[in-house]
Computed example of a mutant assay.
Amino acid sequence: MTYRLNRDIPLADALRCTAREEITASLDALQQRPGEEAVHEVRKHCKKMRALLRLVRAQIPDCYRIENAHYRALANSLSGTRDAVSIRDALLMLAPPERFPNTFAFLQQNAKTQTDPEALAAAAEMLRQGLSRIDNWPLAQLHWRHTKHGYRQGYRRARKALSRARAEAGLEQYHELRKRVKDHWYHCRLLQDTWREATPRSAPLKQMAQALGDWRDLKLLCALLSRHSQSFSGELIPVINTAQERIVKLRGEVKQLGRTLFTEHTPHCKKNSPRRRARENKS
């Protein structure tokens, strides 16, 4: 499955096709993958659905509000499981389990206890409800030119979030920046057949989003371990110190990528010609 709008068909059809693919992939993950992986996949596809809708939100404001709230609630219903897994994986990113065995055992158990089969079943039902509404989305008046506004708006929101994070590099600011960077990254992926500038931005935006996610997970790891410091005799300080070293490096990476990716106030949008699209599709 490719997260990419087909430029050779009307925009309404392309949006519906991509939306169905995302929901179908989510339902397949719930049926075929273990709990942790299923949760990760469903939340990822919910974010991609919201980015898809956000691309044309100015033209479908009422539909956007309903559908965005639906997929936000769906993702949030699984956030406890995902955060616990992300924190455990943040430790594994720093060191193998045997280096900090007590800490790893605690985080592994925490991740297992957060898995909720009822939440997964409820998520599947919400996905089926969302799928049933796609044909009724009011997309008849949409044209490909409308994607330029959505693309530029997503860029400007990410740029503003970057400015706020530079002024105050707290957990809330970096979390918001990550969401906005991911939206812009998803828009670049969706529009790689439409706007020439979108394709080369995808890889560095993905890198920036990953760095922001790793930064957040490490901050959550440090906060959680500090609240349970009595359980990790001899391990807490080495874990925190190792995490802080990595956090500093990630902040530097985010700053560098931000300077490269968000220099313009408003990005240029040059059309991708059919011939150029054909060449890129072959490559």
Rank of each mutant, 00 (worst) to 15 (best):
Y64S: 04
N272D: 04
D83W: 05
L224N: 09
A90N: 04
L52Y: 05
E21Q: 15
S283T: 13
S226I: 09
A243N: 05
T2W: 07
T263G: 13
E280C: 06
L162C: 06
R259M: 00
P274N: 09
F104K: 05
R178E: 07
E280V: 08
H149D: 09
L225S: 05
G130M: 03
Q207F: 09
D193G: 15
L52V: 06
H143R: 12
N136V: 13
E125F: 15
T115C: 12
I9C: 06
P117E: 14
Y151Q: 05
R128C: 02
L162F: 02
A158N: 03
R246H: 11
A90F: 04
Q173M: 13
A58M: 11
R133D: 14
H175N: 08
G150V: 04
R152A: 12
N102H: 10
H143Q: 10
T103K: 10
L107T: 01
E37W: 02
G35K: 02
R180G: 02
L91S: 05
T147M: 05
A25R: 05
T18I: 10
R189C: 07
V239R: 06
C222N: 06
L53S: 12
T263L: 12
C17T: 15
T24N: 12
H265V: 09
F106N: 02
P96E: 03
N272A: 14
L30K: 14
A75S: 03
R277N: 03
F106H: 03
K219G: 10
I9G: 06
Q173L: 12
T115V: 15
F262L: 12
A84E: 07
H228E: 02
P200H: 06
D62A: 15
L78N: 06
